[in-house]
Computed example of a mutant assay.
Amino acid sequence: MRLPATEFTSRPWRIHDLAPDFTVEDVWGFRTPGAGPHDFPIMLAALQTDGGLDRNPPLVHFLFEVRWKLGALFGWDKPGQGIGARIPSLRDRLPPDLRETRTGRAFPKTPFTPVYELDDECAIELANKTVHAIAHLGWVPAPNGEYELRMTALVKPNGLCGQLYMAGIKPFRYLIVYPAMTQQWERAWRNRDRAGSKQ
């Protein structure tokens, strides 16, 4: 479910101080029935187990394949365009208390790198020739007294090329990628007992 940017900006996340130069691109909510305030690590473990890109439907697979082929053609994903090359990692901005926390979990079959992980939020990042992007995951109380997962995409496009790229993929995100992600991530929560056994 798409949410207004204020659902991210109004909450006291640590990421606000780390990424003031990034723009909120999308905020999305995921239903997690029965979730409590301390279940964020369980949700992350479920995503780690059941959330890989290989679980996406064929159309999403096709879109990612097209994206990787375009990246290879135009040199978007060369090592010199990524984290630690074209731009420094967000981890370089971490204050001492966050540096002492766990880096975070790797999410299989994604190009994202962990930045930090707390009891109710985490951040992962990626960079290529078009954009430096952060996916922020947060655990928030829902109106029904349970808790649910929120995902916010924060972006810093790389010049005109990056701006055009973000505009070009926007309809695909809303019409195809996010709906598929919603099914996948909500299924991961339903299958969390299997994920929890692997923590």
Rank of each mutant, 00 (worst) to 15 (best):
L118Y: 00
A85K: 11
P12I: 04
R150A: 09
L149E: 03
Y147F: 13
G51P: 05
F30S: 09
M151F: 07
P4T: 01
A142S: 14
P33Y: 01
L47Y: 10
G34K: 03
D193V: 02
T9D: 01
Q163L: 05
S89I: 10
P141C: 10
R194E: 14
P96Y: 08
R91F: 05
T113C: 10
D119W: 15
K170E: 08
G29I: 06
L126E: 14
A195C: 11
P33C: 01
P33S: 04
K129Y: 06
C122N: 09
R14N: 09
G29E: 04
H16G: 02
K69M: 05
W139A: 00
P12C: 12
R192L: 15
A188N: 06
M43L: 15
A123G: 15
P111A: 09
T130R: 00
F64S: 02
S89A: 12
D193S: 13
W28Y: 14
R187Q: 07
D119Q: 13
P95K: 08
R99K: 12
K129D: 01
G138H: 03
F64H: 13
R105G: 03
E7C: 06
I169A: 08
W76I: 05
T130D: 02
A180C: 08
I15L: 03
Y174K: 10
Q183A: 12
N144W: 05
P179T: 14
A135G: 07
M166T: 10
I83T: 06
A142L: 12
D77C: 08
R93N: 08
R2C: 04
L98P: 01
P171W: 15
E7I: 00
L118C: 04
P37I: 11
T110C: 08
W185A: 11
T113W: 11
